[in-house]
Amino acid sequence: MDILNRLSTQISALATGEQWIVSAQDLMISRTDFQSLSVYLSRESQGGSFSVSSTEQRANPTLTVIKH
Rank of each mutant, 00 (worst) to 15 (best):
V52R: 11
S42E: 14
A24V: 10
D26Q: 09
E56I: 09
A59T: 15
R58Y: 10
G47A: 14
Q35Y: 13
G48Q: 04
S54D: 06
A13C: 07
T32N: 08
Q19E: 05
S30C: 09
S54T: 04
G48E: 13
R58I: 07
V39Y: 06
S12E: 03
S12Y: 10
V52P: 09
G17V: 09
Q57W: 10
V39M: 10
L41P: 02
I29Q: 09
V52K: 08
Q10F: 03
Q19C: 11
I11F: 01
S45V: 07
F34A: 03
Q25C: 03
L41V: 04
R31A: 10
S49D: 02
A15R: 15
I11H: 01
Y40I: 10
R43W: 08
A59K: 00
Q46H: 06
S42R: 15
S54A: 12
S54E: 02
R31P: 02
F34S: 04
S45R: 13
V52I: 15
W20M: 15
V39E: 00
T55D: 01
I21E: 04
V22A: 03
S45Y: 07
T16V: 11
D26F: 02
Y40F: 13
V39K: 07
S51L: 11
L14A: 08
R43N: 07
Q25Y: 03
S36D: 14
S54Q: 13
V39I: 12
W20C: 07
V52T: 00
S51C: 04
A59G: 01
S51P: 00
D33A: 15
R31Q: 10
F50M: 08
S23E: 09
S54L: 02
G48N: 08
S36I: 09
R58H: 00
I21S: 08
S49P: 05
F34V: 10
A15K: 15
S30W: 09
A24F: 12
I29H: 06
F34T: 02
Q57K: 12
R43Y: 14
I21N: 15
Q46G: 13
G47V: 15
F34C: 10
M28K: 09
F50N: 01
W20Y: 15
S12R: 08
R43H: 12
A24M: 04
A13L: 08
I29G: 02
Q35W: 05
S36L: 14
Q35G: 00
S42H: 08
T32M: 14
D26H: 08
Q19W: 12
M28R: 14
E18S: 13
L41Y: 11
S51H: 00
G47T: 08
T32W: 10
F34P: 06
I29M: 07
L37P: 07
T16A: 13
R58F: 09
V22H: 02
V22F: 01
Q57S: 12
S30D: 14
G47W: 01
Q57F: 00
Q25T: 09
E44L: 14
G48L: 04
D33Y: 12
S12I: 07
R58A: 05
T55M: 03
I29C: 05
S49I: 04
G48F: 05
L41K: 04
V39N: 06
S54K: 11
I11Y: 01
